[in-house]
Design a protein around this nucleic acid. Structure first.
Lengths: 350, 350
DNA sequence: CCAAATACTGTAATCGGTTACAATAAAGGT
DNA sequence: ACCTTTATTGTAACCGATTACAGTATTTGG
């Protein structure tokens, strides 16, 4: 920077201003400085700037599982908004471990990032509250009651209810649920939706019909095997996510049965494999990209200390009816739900 | 830090030493300082340290597509090694755009990262050479001849040859290839392997049998449709990656034909969906996690200016025979290749 | 018992920008 | 013509750690 200043015959302050406050500098000197920068191929030392301004322009995004098809779409939403506003995204993969989640909190404490988007919150409410009181933090996907942290999510309880109601409307009575790990709020919420729908339709609930998986294809496979080995196996199974649903369908098939004829299945998330898998997956679609965008926009407001219009955003989900729930067997692939909204199930749409 | 120093009745230099050179400090003062740190809940200002030491302890990883199942495994390999050595990983998603690739190079120029792992290299050789001469850079997956940049990859030509040879050994003669975009070296390499195998078996090559896709499921679907509409459609298709292979299989099915009976298919990468998809995908397995680990270890050597044992590492790939190539139809799911190596195809392995 | 080596700690310069404040020049107003 | 305001630029303090160097205390060796 000294060199540039010398060459342009100005002070370092002016060079700095050309770079970060161009309006404060006259056209002529600005031109001279820019030329000098160009000639000397000067690159500002970003870390020095970060140090001086106490801003890193970095956003930390904590993901429970980077390999999951679901989160990558959310990430993209976050990243697009971030880059647009001059921020960069650091990814932190917790691999579903709560300790690692905690470790990453340090990055905020140490001011290595200007803010954080949490796509997982296994920590207890107290810890979360503490960190989000001190730093800009947005929670996405997971929702906690009575938590002040700004949140973007869908209503997991109602969407889960919607799925079960669909089964019931089609005449199913023996409906099982493969849940996610019970220490994850999302799992408890979706389970609650299942229970609510069963109760309100006066259907009995056998606790054997509730099996806890761990998000993976394998665990979907194993839990479905358990359900199939019951004396009275279910005729329909609602699965916490699409990955486990795919595992579950494989289990049905390995048992010589078929989906949806013998067992109907509904998944969750509408990952990009859902319309491609055979049979095509009926599932709850989350607006993944939009969740990411919204979360990042919220975070920017927090960082800039702008007032928030509200702290909790619940986006719309949608039951996408394809083949695994059996609904469309006697019909065309394209259908409409009872509200008349198109439920497109064309293959290869995304 | 001042506060800590005062409280422990030492100078800031000593506090600093306790944190970064604990051996230089006596046990008693170390204890005092640590107590003070604890009582004041002091967090070192990492950016200040980065500034002073001119090290960020950050690694930039440039990925062509973060949503791809293939790369996430490599990422995990990189990240594990990085964290183990006190480095953090920033992810840069180029979304398959060369411009964005170039943009990210700036992060290195600006010293915002100590090194970079490239999982994509669409830039020309000259640009790449320039940056890798000036900074620690490792190339993974893609391989360029006559390039000095340290590289970790498999031998794409030979693995592609292997796939085609398998088709030929099974009696196929009309073998097509759905490639990746031709501006990607990997695509050209795998195409070359296809051509070599065809030539060396005196099989004719119809240029209509070579169709260029763009990595996505959709393009696999579309290119396969083209192949199916030929007067003399192929009986076997080698596809650049598993995603496109899955699209291709769907196209076959939509045409009322079936895999592998009418058309045999071999994919590439062995993504985690490969053994789950129906029919199970025969594919070339890349040691994804190991590629990531090796690349990161190489990068660490570069950063620490250690000598490299060599600059090019070619890891072993493996043809994993499952169902889509037809080989195991009359046999068990488990098979062995001609070298006697087990080719496990158990469902739900990963 | 003293010199030399060793162990520990403190002082202060330093990294490369940013920005408050001061200084100067130019423009505008009466 | 003179004062006020505005525009532009320079000077130098500052951000919070690290570390070379110097100084002091302690141990070792003869």
């Amino acid at each position: 920077m000294q060199d540039v200043a010398k060459r342009a015959n100005v002070s370092t302050a002016t060079v700095s201003r050309v770079l970060s406050n161009p309006d404060k500098v006259s056209e002529s000197t600005k031109k001279r400085v820019l030329e000098a920068i160009d000639e000397l191929n000067y690159q500002p030392h970003v870390v020095a700037r970060q140090f001086r301004t106490m801003q890193t322009k970095i956003i930390l995004v904590v993901v429970p599982d980077i390999t999951s098809a679901f989160f990558s779409q959310i990430l993209r939403g976050i990243e697009h908004v971030a880059i647009e506003h001059g921020y960069q995204v650091i990814l932190a993969d917790t691999e579903n471990k709560t300790e690692r989640e905690r470790e990453y909190m340090n990055i905020l404490h140490q001011k290595q990032a200007d803010g954080m988007v949490l796509l997982t919150a296994r920590m207890n409410k107290h810890e979360l509250e503490e960190i989000s009181d001190a730093f800009p933090v947005v929670l996405a996907c997971e929702y906690m009651d009575e938590l002040n942290t700004p949140t973007v999510s869908i209503d997991n309880i109602s969407s889960s209810r919607k799925a079960i109601q669909h089964f019931i409307d089609m005449g199913h009575r023996k409906i099982a649920h493969i849940t996610g790990p019970m220490d994850v709020i999302l799992s408890r919420d979706r389970l609650r939706g299942y229970q609510q729908a069963m109760y309100s339709n006066d259907l009995p609930m056998d606790s054997l019909y509730i099996q806890e998986g761990n998000f993976t294809i394998e665990s979907g496979y194993n839990q479905m095997k358990k359900l199939l080995s019951l004396d009275e196996p279910p005729t329909a199974v609602f699965v916490f996510n699409d990955e486990m649903a795919i595992g579950a369908i494989n289990a049905v098939r390995d048992q010589g049965l078929s989906v949806p004829e013998d067992i109907a299945v509904i998944g969750f998330d509408n990952i990009n494999m859902a319309p491609i898998f055979t049979p095509k997956l009926t599932t709850i679609d989350q607006p993944k990209y939009e969740i990411g965008q919204k979360a990042m926009n919220l975070l920017l407001s927090l960082i800039n200390k702008e007032p928030l219009e509200k702290r909790k955003f619940v986006l719309k989900d949608e039951l996408v009816i394809r083949e695994t729930c059996g609904y469309t067997l006697s019909r065309n692939n394209d259908s409409r739900d009872k509200d008349g909204n198109a439920i497109s199930t064309k293959i290869l749409e995304h």
